[in-house]
Structures are given as structure tokens and as C-alpha cells.
Design a protein around this nucleic acid. Structure first.
Lengths: 291, 291
DNA sequence: ACGGATTTGTGCGTATGTATA
DNA sequence: CTATACATACGCACAAATCCG
């Protein structure tokens, strides 16, 4: 019943400031963490087994597990039963430049053969593939409603694409879930008798689908959040529990000010990184727009 | 000795595909997660105690703790000994617009009274405060060296600022760690006999410190990553274990192409969000720059 | 300022199931 | 199939943090 902080409700548990022997699990945690940070344990290396560590430190297996659980939560190691064991995690990031409009008009739908995300990933040596994983009419979740400035629950079309990367014989990995949300009336618009936004396959139009439908997106509002994945996302992205995800939302606004669509991209923090490149205006460009 | 995936070394543990009774902890986890998702448990609400849940489900306390640990890891609840107990977590995000250069030239150092971050936070009703928490000469970590395109280990000056937010009687929270890394020769440059970048206090120059030193940053390269905090960051930001952080790096490049500085901002995912607003060029603006 | 009540944190032991090589 | 190593689950005890009287 008392007033808690509205940013974070917690006062997290913290070790007392007075000098006190560290918790046992923390000794193990610190030791392993140091070995990883200092490169004595490298990505891909096996971490000693729980039993080894237990006998080595003289602690119980449960205590060792606490330390390992924390390392896993920190994204430093992975776990797998059997002979997989625990390993020091790799972190290889595919980057995505969100301000490179040069290569043909930017669009979320492939205009050339590849879109901007694929182009960036390929430039770093990744093979890419993307598939449309469903076009569905759904009630707008609160967040999407906020992006499109409509009432929560409004019917929208969600077009989900899954973006995979792979490299030299390495099994393909899902790098990103890309959901495009569009108002129903726009999604139903047709060109030559077909509604491209409702196609279950990867539709390609020169200049992008929205442009072909008559919308020129002149302004983008991007928003980036950091959070833990929902169970659905964790399953789709196939990430370990404890891997954070980034969420990038791009709202496209046309010349009349209408919010034409929002592209919500969710990606695992250990696989993807975002880039922006900005030219700084000389002075104050127009002094205009201040919301 | 076998080839593991180079993106993520793991094959995460997964429940067998065959229909099998869920793990006990998972039953509890799903129940509580559903209650939170459906709003039966709201942010700030107390979660039933471990003992209550144990007797309610007829499971051991350790099993209940596994479920609660997972919820905590997912960022959904917080924990604290004693009468704090566990609560459903709040998530209130301060937003930061990284493309609003209009209000006076953008700079990481306050040019007017407030910089862009403070201006954004204040527009949302937060009170802000920032302090310089140290100016130190350090060897460039690998990542910073990459940003500044110098050799790892190069001596650099790190100027650390801590950015706090608070609201109506709510205790102040650290929202962001903002580290500006500058080559030593630039950091030592003086104006009227003093080197502003070495000042331990919040120095204010109209147009920004770098501009006053003669550098006009004409181009920014931004990079955004998502990861788990280091123990240091977790302690500084005072976040629960399991809270992800975002890392925003902005490299400032002057008209000669020199990388003048990099501002590395680390923030807790449950407190901060990033925004960009972009105008889409009509065609292909110059066709130039392609790295 | 102190002490008690509550609730989570740490730690031990043991046992069995299950995925992987 | 077997060995390995992690996952799940139980029980118990005590320490530590917070709040309130």
C-alpha cells in the first residue's frame, strides 16, 4: 500500500555494504566471469561441469548451479544437456543500417531483389533469406495502436516476415521477426486486381508496395526498445532464456500526414545490431516541426 | 570438437515435442504469466509469497522459486527480501529523440541549460539531473577503439556523466550512463587557459564544447546494441539481475573526416527508449557515400 | 533504537528424468 | 545401449532485509 517508485518498483536485493564474505555462488560466478572477460575462457570453450566445479570448490551442486544460472542470465554461457554441456557464448552481430535510402528508395518490401536489411547482412558475408509467415487480420495491440495513432482494438492487417541468416555451412538462424501492420483499407487496395499486401509470398514492386499503391512515405518515426522476449518470441527466435531482444518500430507517414503502416522488427540482442548515419544540419534547418 | 553455430553456440534446452506433462515450475510460471498478461495482476501488485504458492500448488518451495526466477528473468516481476516481497514490475520509459537538432545545435554537453536528453525527459514530466562522475585517462577498450578507428589500447579521455530522472516525490533513478571518449590531444585543448573536456563539473558552452574547440561535427554514426549489463553497470544503474540494457554509441565526425569523439550511452531497458525521426529523401539524394 | 514478524536469499543433501554423443 | 551432464524436484535449516510497532 505504500508508494513505490514508478520507474522500477523494486529496491533490488543488494549485498550489505559492510565487508562480508561473498556468497558462495558469487565466488564461483566471479571466478568464471573473470576467466571469460580475460579470455582464459573463449567463446565456444566448454565450461567445467557442475560436478567438477562442485568438487573443485567444495560447494554443493546446487550452489554451483546458482552461479552458472547467473552467468547464463548474463548471456555469457549457454547450457545443454548431455555432451553439449555448457559453453562460453558467441556473439556475432548482423548490422542493419536504417538510414541508407540511397540504394533505390528504401522500403520494407524488397524493391530490387534484396531490401536494405538483406543488403547490409550480405555485405558482412551472411546469406539471407526471408519468408512471409502469415498475413492476418488482428485487433491492434495497445502498442501498435499507439504507433498508428488509432484506437486499440482497431482491425489491422499484420504481415509477418521472418528474416534468416546463415554462413558457410552454418545452420540457418532466424535473425529478425518483421511485422508490418497496415490499416485494413490500405491493405485491401489492389493493383491489377490483386492486393499485394495480402499476398502470402514475397511480393516485389519497384519502389516498394506502398509506393505502388500511391503512398509516398515522406517521414519515418522510429522507436527502439530493449526488453526480454515473450515466450512466443523466444521460441521463434530460438534464443536461450536470458537473451534480451531489441524492438525497432518504424512508422511511415505520407505527405498528408497519414500513418500508412508500422514495421515492428524484433531481434535477438546477440545476433543483430542497428545503425544510423546522420548528417548534422548546418544551423537550425527550418526551425519548423516541434510536434 | 564439432562445428557449433557461430551465431549462438547453443542448442537451447527444449521440452520434448511429444505431448508430455509440463514441468511443475512451468505450470506455476504459465499461470502467473497469464495473470500478468491479462491484467489480473497489475504493475505494483504483490505476487503471492513462495510459501503461499507452494501450499497452493502442493509443490516444494524450490519448485516455486524456479518459476519465480524465470518470471524475474523475463523482467515481469521484482524480488526483495522481507516486506518488499515480489511485485509485478512497472515499465515506464523515458524517451530520447536522437534526431532533434533543432533546439540549438545538438551536443552531448549542455549548450543551453539542458541538453537534448534532458529536454525530452522534461517534456514527459520528468525532472532531470546530470552529474559528471569522473574524467579519466584510460586505454581504449576494443569496442571504443573500433568506434574511434584507433588502435585498441590507445590512451583516451573518458568523461562519464550520470543522468538521473525523478518524478513527484519518487526517488531519483539513474536512467543512463553517458561516457564520452575523446582522443587525448583533443581533450587537452584549452579555451582561455582551461581544458573544458577535463573539467569535473558540467561545463556549458554555447554550441557545445567541441564546437567551441573548433570542431564542427558534420556527421554522426550511431550504433545500437542490446545486451545484458556487466556487474558494474547493473550496480550503477541499480537494476535487477535480468534487466537488459541498451547501448547507444554516437561517433561524431568533423568536416575533415576525423572521428572527434564517441558518446557511449548505456541505459536500462525498463527506463529508457530511443527515437529517431527521419525525412525520406525524394529520390536518391547524391548517390554518393557508400562506405 | 530495538525487536519481532514476514519474506526472500543462501546453502546443503538426495534422487530421478532426459537429451546428446 | 551406455555414459555423461544437465534439468527437475523434494526436504531442511539458517541468514538477511524490510517494515512496523
Amino acid at each position: 500500500m505504500q508508494a513505490f517508485c514508478t520507474i522500477c518498483t523494486d529496491k533490488p536485493w543488494r549485498r550489505p555494504r559492510v565487508a562480508r564474505s561473498r556468497a558462495r555462488w558469487e565466488v564461483v560466478y566471479d571466478d568464471l566471469r573473470t576467466q571469460i572477460d580475460q579470455g582464459k575462457l573463449n567463446p565456444g570453450d566448454r565450461v567445467p561441469t557442475e560436478i567438477d566445479l562442485a568438487s573443485q570448490y567444495g560447494f554443493s551442486r546446487a550452489t554451483i548451479r546458482s552461479a552458472l544460472a547467473r552467468l547464463e542470465q548474463d548471456g555469457l554461457i549457454t547450457a545443454g544437456a548431455g555432451s553439449l554441456g555448457r559453453q562460453v557464448r558467441r556473439r556475432e552481430l548482423v548490422s542493419w543500417n536504417l538510414t541508407r535510402f540511397e540504394l533505390g528508395a528504401y522500403s520494407d518490401d524488397p524493391t530490387n531483389r534484396v531490401d536494405q536489411w538483406e543488403s547490409d547482412a550480405q555485405a558482412e558475408g551472411w546469406s539471407t533469406r526471408q519468408v512471409v509467415a502469415g498475413v492476418t487480420e488482428l485487433a491492434a495491440p495497445d502498442e501498435v495502436a499507439r504507433y498508428l495513432d488509432c484506437a486499440p482494438g482497431t482491425r489491422l492487417i499484420r504481415r509477418r516476415r521472418l528474416r534468416y541468416v546463415s554462413r558457410q555451412g552454418i545452420p540457418e538462424q532466424l535473425a529478425m521477426i518483421a511485422d508490418t501492420w497496415t490499416p485494413v483499407d490500405i491493405a485491401r487496395m489492389e493493383i491489377d486486381g490483386v492486393a499485394p499486401l495480402l499476398q502470402e509470398t514475397n511480393v516485389v514492386y519497384p519502389g516498394g508496395i506502398y509506393r505502388a499503391l500511391g503512398f509516398r512515405q515522406v517521414h519515418y518515426k522510429d522507436e527502439i526498445q530493449v526488453r526480454m522476449p515473450t515466450p512466443d518470441e523466444a521460441a521463434l527466435l530460438d534464443v536461450q532464456p536470458g537473451t534480451p531482444v531489441g524492438q525497432h518500430a518504424r512508422v511511415g507517414i505520407d505527405s498528408t500526414g497519414r500513418r500508412v503502416r508500422v514495421l515492428v522488427s524484433t531481434f535477438a540482442g546477440d545476433r543483430q545490431l542497428l545503425r544510423y548515419e546522420l548528417d548534422v544540419p548546418e544551423r537550425r534547418p527550418t526551425q519548423a516541426e516541434e510536434e
